[in-house]
Write a protein that binds this DNA or RNA. Structure first.
Lengths: 352, 352
DNA sequence: ATGAAAGCGCTAACAA
DNA sequence: TTGTTAGCGCTTTCAT
């Protein structure tokens, strides 16, 4: 009986993986020559090189990256992590994250890096460095800083190269890339005020840095218009899709009149609108709604969603560039990307 | 001047990565003993082992997985790929994909495997095997077979371990995991017929295996009810979010009356409903709508979306199990997971 | 119970 | 232009 081990080719069935020595033998040269040929070294004879390259190609031989990395002491793999709340054991659901992930994959590929993806329970964020510590990746891109400010700072103290998508905070030792959340919140709120709305509900978890900063922008806009901030208009809801529903239901329960909603994500805004509709509230006539992110669906939702646009592709490129610079010992600064308000029907056009 | 190279720690700034020899020196033993201690070998003295483990832990030393893999000829990394259409250069946008990705990450982690993620242009699917050929991963999980049936077959002929999320096809050499698309299409259509709908529009790209099979189920249900299939009710649209809009607009342009829509994804169903609404059509009163996937938002959408549920977590576990079995040379069969109709307001409850 | 030494697949001096 | 050789960080015989 043949004992077969997980994660390893079976001894009997699979034929041995092709390796450089095989190519060398078939080409009648040494492995050194093959190595040189495959790296397009000018040292090797043009014809020999052509022969070797052709041979390798036809046999689909590909250099063993693990061995190559070991020898070269290099590594072209980056970890991407998305924290999730352990208790809610929720599937990833926000389209914004998917777009971000796709853009990060693109940006990394563009730079010739592979992406090692993991979800990570927010209770075990200290384990986030494992892929780095074990040499599987050269650095970490963390999408969403959550409540982990301190833990991330500790990673930096341990010299773990990490770049975070999130909001800038005081005492922040790590490099952080994010949109200008305060300005975003301010623009959204100002727009609602300009539309004549005065009782604007805010939906978002103030325990998280990004919603908090959006809320600060919201407050700033209100105060600039001489309108006091009413805490009864603020509802703390998570980023999960039912947050929008819960936010609206809470407002209804509070019996607090409101004529607008500013939600901290498009997903929240959309489920909030759906819930408003089930309560017979018209959007934007009775309640205007603005979201945050500007995901693809926002422009197709009914009513078309007004939202604060986050430049995802630029964000991903910035994060990747920052991480690589960090690893190279180059200069790294946190970046706030500019945000733009995409004005659509859910919080109508201004009559210019 | 110090030349710094990408993907490599800078020579000056970063301190050398800790390695086994360091731990050995500090513990006053040989690397062999450290290796044994870290693998909890009973060969090493209990006290020595404790001392070494403690030392390693406090120094955050972690075995270099690359070197370990090379020595052990093992590898615990799996590639996950999502093809995208090169021309539309579209960001990933379907929440279903994100949920799938998250579940795959969970299932792989559960089995102690890492996930190497890449998007891959559908024109270069033959390059999908690169991570496998170069020994970075031991197999491939492809999410979405698209139009790549033949290319995937070729990979299998090359003995590349691959498991695909998609539909079962004739002449299929690869292992395929998917939901029972025909049955799903049939259930959705039967439900609409039972609601008294007779002119059911079908939205989906028949060039793709999954929508095609859902369409077959749709046709089967119609015929069983003695209703002919009307090609004017079928609109080919992509899985991109604006597909729903385009589908409805096309139906309107055709001036073809219809009282129901069966869309091949929830995303399409949702944007279709939004577009119907802008045309003043009431859902479900004028037109009932059923989607496919049962993503988290479906239950929160207005109206609550009736949809064919795909068991994502089970799907991911099945795919991972199949791939590992395939790699171990074990038996592998394609699997069709059962589908259930989640009945909600968009295609109302049956009055029992 | 521990260490010395060989070798995983590759690259880069160095020699020829 | 090519080959020989040493060694990347680790594990595992084999010897002690």
């Amino acid at each position: 009986m043949v004992k077969v081990q997980r994660g390893q080719a079976s001894i009997d069935g699979a034929r041995r993986r092709l390796q450089m020595a095989d190519i060398a033998r078939l080409a009648g040269v040494s492995t050194a020559t093959v190595s040189r040929a495959l790296s397009h070294s000018p040292l090797v004879n043009v014809e020999t090189r052509a022969r070797i390259l052709e041979l390798a190609q036809s046999l689909k031989y590909s250099i063993n990256v693990g061995a190559q990395n070991l020898r070269l002491k290099q590594n072209r793999t980056v970890s991407v992590m998305i924290p999730f709340e352990r208790d809610t054991r929720q599937h990833l659901s926000d389209p914004f994250l998917l777009a971000m992930l796709g853009s990060l994959a693109d940006a990394l590929t563009e730079q010739g890096f592979d992406m090692l993806f993991s979800r990570i329970g927010s209770d075990e964020l200290d384990a986030a460095a494992a892929p780095f510590d074990s040499g599987r990746s050269i650095g970490i891109l963390l999408v969403g800083q959550g409540r982990h400010h301190e833990q991330i700072n500790e990673l930096v103290a341990r010299h773990v190269p990490i770049v975070v998508w999130g909001a800038q905070l005081p005492d922040q030792l790590y490099c952080c890339v994010g949109s200008d959340n305060v300005r975003g919140g301010e623009m959204a709120t100002s727009h609602l005020l300009a539309l004549g709305r005065r009782r604007i509900a805010f939906l978002g978890d103030l325990a998280l840095p990004e919603p908090l900063q959006r809320y600060r922008g919201y407050c700033a806009a209100l105060e600039r218009h001489g309108i006091g901030v009413d805490p009864r208009l603020q509802v703390s809801v998570s980023f999960l899709p039912d947050g929008g529903m819960q936010g609206v239901q809470e407002m209804v329960r509070r019996a607090e009149p409101f004529d607008a909603v500013f939600a901290s994500s498009d997903l929240l805004a959309m489920t909030a609108i759906d819930t408003l509709r089930t309560h017979g509230v018209r959007v934007p006539d009775d309640v205007a709604v603005i979201g945050y992110d500007d995901i693809a669906q926002a422009a197709l939702f009914h009513p078309r969603l007004t939202t604060v646009h986050q430049p995802i592709a630029a964000a991903a490129e910035t994060m990747v560039a920052a991480l690589l610079s960090l690893i190279d010992g180059g200069p790294v600064r946190s970046v706030e990307l500019p945000t733009v308000l995409s004005i659509r029907a859910s919080a109508g056009e201004l009559l210019a």
